[in-house]
Amino acid sequence: MQRYILSRIVQSLLILLGVLFIVFFMLQLTGDPVSLMVSRNASPEQMEMLREEMGFNRPILIQFGDFIGGALVGDFGMSLRHRQPAMELILERLPATVELAATALLIALLIGIPLGLLSGSNPGSFWDTLARGAGLVGQTIPNFWLALILIVVFSVELGWFPTFGRRTWDVFGMELPTKSVILPAFSLGLFTTGQLVRFTRSAVLEIKNEDYVRTAYSKGLKDNQIYLRHILRNASIPLISIVGVQFGYLLSGSIYIETIFSWPGIGNLLAEAIGNRDFALVQAIAFFASLVVVTLNLLTDIAYGLADPRIRYGD
């Protein structure tokens, strides 16, 4: 197990290095980065000045070395627009994105797993039909479309939720979520919900036929004991990887959902940075998102190993 964790850590670091490489050279591939940053009628002198200021006139390897060196300490340079370090901007927006992602995941778990369990345990039943429908809809409906519908119905018509923005409830310096997160989180978690329903359902259907489930029945256990203790417990191991990967995806920020709801998170920041051709910020966000995904995948793999005694006590 230790060796496994170690090799996964090394692997993750290599991936991140690769990401840095891509993030850096993507900008170079565009030819002259400065020409992308300035307005079309800028004078050559202005461009030269900017080139000087950004260090683009130095040899490329030196620039890359600088970039890596900076990245290792979280320094991706200044945002052109905000005149503020890029990383600082990201960290400012992080709480909003975490709030949104965590709520989305929570909703997905609370809906997806029970529904998947109900449907897998009674295939062909009303619950099964419902769950299969929900799974399909969740995975095929575009989340921004659902977001708009939800806004029209629940915010505009019924007035239950704000139409946009994030409101928090400050208690002793902590920013606690309010109902403003519900609609964006539901829309964002839609795909994950669908995936969890479908995955839980098929895992339950498969595990139901395992020999050890028959053994559990032969002991005279009750159905709910068998489903929770034996079937769900075994299904939870592969579920861990889905949940981990999905959380990484949710956390790296959603441009659509955050923009539609004017949610002040990282996705929103990215949309803005792209619009402003704020390259330092785009690079920083791209790297940050990869960092989140890679870290979560690593943690997922470790959790997976810990949850499965065959791996935990294996070599």
């Binding site: 050890y212 028959r214 029945y217 002991k219 005279g220 203790r229 034996h230 499965d308």
Partner: peptide
């Protein structure tokens, strides 16, 4: 009756025992 009156020993104990319990 199951387990209480009649006990069952299955063929392949590796698959008949829950691997994560």
């Amino acid at each position: 009756v199951r387990g209480g009156k009649i006990g069952y020993i299955f063929q392949d104990a590796l698959s008949a025992l829950n691997p994560v319990m």
